[in-house]
Design a protein around this nucleic acid. Structure first.
Lengths: 337, 337
DNA sequence: AGCTGGCACTCGGTGTTCCCGAGTGCCAGT
DNA sequence: ACTGGCACTCGGGAACACCGAGTGCCAGCT
């Protein structure tokens, strides 16, 4: 089978290029992998692969380098995700198990992933929209100020200071708190606006100004957090890999929440890995980089995404294995807490 | 006065080198600044300055470059902090005023500072230790789990999930909450351990296991957060400045909380600026970088520190001006909320 | 004394040239 | 369909020369 060998050649090229970071030539290829044919034959295959756009030469008479399309084929058909070693698994488990709150989980995860893959790790905070209200708390701070705290079932806490129009006594606050909790407990964040829409009407007239103020803050906090929070770690790993494209662009992208959001991509089935290679991703500053991402979430619910970002010439099987494993463990941790 | 001119020469060298990033020679010096003497004279001065260790030549017969000691003298005696323009002040003010909670304040501050100085900005979260308890909240999550929330007067919120030894009914929880709040309200975080030490003894026997569990979590959360949280932004600005020392080291340092802590240094009078130049700072990976830091805090209380990190050849007067201004504005915002 | 102009010297950086070798494409032969 | 042979290409490194900014020093001037 001719085609079979061409694929083998492509795989070999990707593997060699990833490990050596140098264009790979026909001779080196037959030496390192035992394809049972001569360099000349490989050259013919390579010519075809080049014509089809899977590989390219940086300049005439140099070795070949995989193109984005080549990596794509490699990822889709020529490689399989490499599972982590037992030691690595145990390390992950113990490291994540020590987390004390949701912040801590995210921070630990992102560092872990960066260290594991030796690349830049990106983790999105569990989304508010798919979680439910667990408790609403109103804490009087002074006569005319109170703190509003919203606690979700994912352990996330939103807080806002509310300036009140009038002096309000504790009894009223306690009452409103009770009403709010009765009304919202367990309800999904997306349905909160509906639930509270007619709430002021159901209260005695003298409570309405207070309720209106608090509710407006509540609603505001919901919309604002629609744009999720994202953290990254491992930027130092970028310095090692010499980037074709400006490292500056990459760092800039990392500090732009919006860009990161789009990079991680749409939520998909948690067990599925999303790979975006070079020019496939939506930000021009990131040609030359690839993203491997996965969803995570407690139980069946997909809460958010995490992933790593690195040069297109990364070790996809290993990276994918690490991302998948971490996503699973985090899901597990979240489900347990 | 001979000495006077030497200082002027040093100042000129620093200024020119900062703006051009090239070793500066005697001829260029007399052309750009009108010292009323000839290059030869300047050369003599430069020879002396070099002997005293304020400047150095990268290699024989090249221009001079300031040493760390030279920058130090410049900062201490030859420069004055450059105030921001009115437009910049207004921009800061409006940008910070939009902050909605403490997280937001910190995030906005760090970005603002990075953008303003075109360097890496570092901001420490307001310290827990110098703030006081405003409210303690216990939220039952299930029969055997509850969430513990600690709210401080600086608007910071600490949360922990507590696993209970036994099933506990709501009444007990409510009681404990009331007791805790009565006991701790307004008390400084550092004095919390003392305050609660004898608390279990003052409760009915059947409440003690619950109280003990909650208290242990409370105390734990206090110690753990002793090591403060620090964020940075503007790493992309590092890519522009070509670093003498490996950029990798710098990025690594930025991701190490502990190193950052030590860099920002001891708390000092808020209005004072701390400048650490090159080898003066405690981390070898950061030779070649300087830190300009200031304390900030609401009112008189010094809460935490913020600053920027950049190459030793930075524009100190401007950077110092920006850091000082931002520190003041943040203090103001915090005091108001 | 202190400053200046003149002068010989240094040496890093740049541009030029040359060469090598890895790698290619093509072709004729098995 | 594969292989060995061959001529060709071209990037990158080594050798080299040159230029010019910059220096140190010294003798002379004020």
């Amino acid at each position: 089978m001719v085609d079979d060998r061409k694929l083998a050649v492509l795989r070999a090229i990707v593997e060699d290029y990833v490990s050596t970071n140098e264009p790979v030539g026909s001779k080196a290829l037959v030496e390192r992998h035992n394809l049972g044919v001569s360099p000349a034959t490989i050259r013919n295959d390579m010519a075809v692969l080049e014509e089809q756009g899977y590989i390219a030469q940086p300049h005439t008479s140099a070795g070949r380098v995989p193109t984005d399309k080549g990596y794509r084929l490699f990822v889709d058909r020529l490689s399989q995700v490499k599972p982590l070693s037992g030691a690595e698994r145990r390390a992950i488990e113990t490291f994540l198990a020590g987390a004390v709150d949701i912040d801590d989980v995210v921070t630990r995860t992102v560092r872990l992933l960066a260290q594991l893959t030796r690349q830049v790790a990106v983790v999105q905070y569990p989304s508010l929209t798919s979680s439910t209200v667990r408790h609403v708390e109103l804490v009087p701070l002074s006569e005319r100020r109170l703190m509003f705290v919203l606690i979700t079932n994912t352990g996330r806490v939103e807080q806002r200071v509310v300036e009140l129009p009038d002096v309000v006594d504790e009894g009223r606050v306690a009452h409103l708190r009770a009403v709010l909790n009765a009304c919202l407990d367990g309800c999904g964040l997306t349905s909160v606006p509906d639930k509270v829409a007619d709430l002021p009407e159901r209260l005695p007239a003298e409570d309405r100004p207070l309720a209106a103020t608090v509710l407006s803050v509540l609603l505001e906090s919901l919309v604002e957090r629609q744009e999720e929070k994202i953290v990254f770690a491992g930027a130092a790993n970028l310095a090692g890999a010499d980037f074709t494209v400006g490292l500056r662009d990459v760092l800039e992208a990392l500090e732009e929440q919006v860009v990161l959001m789009r990079l991680l991509g749409e939520t998909s089935d948690p067990s599925t890995l999303t790979v975006r290679i070079g020019s496939e991703n939506p930000y021009t500053g990131l040609r030359g980089t690839s993203i491997v991402a996965a969803g995570y979430g407690s139980g069946d619910k997909q809460l958010a995404r995490l992933g790593v970002l690195g040069p297109t010439r990364m070790d996809y099987p290993v990276t994918m294995g690490a991302v998948r494993a971490v996503a699973r463990y985090v899901s597990q941790i979240l489900a347990a807490s």
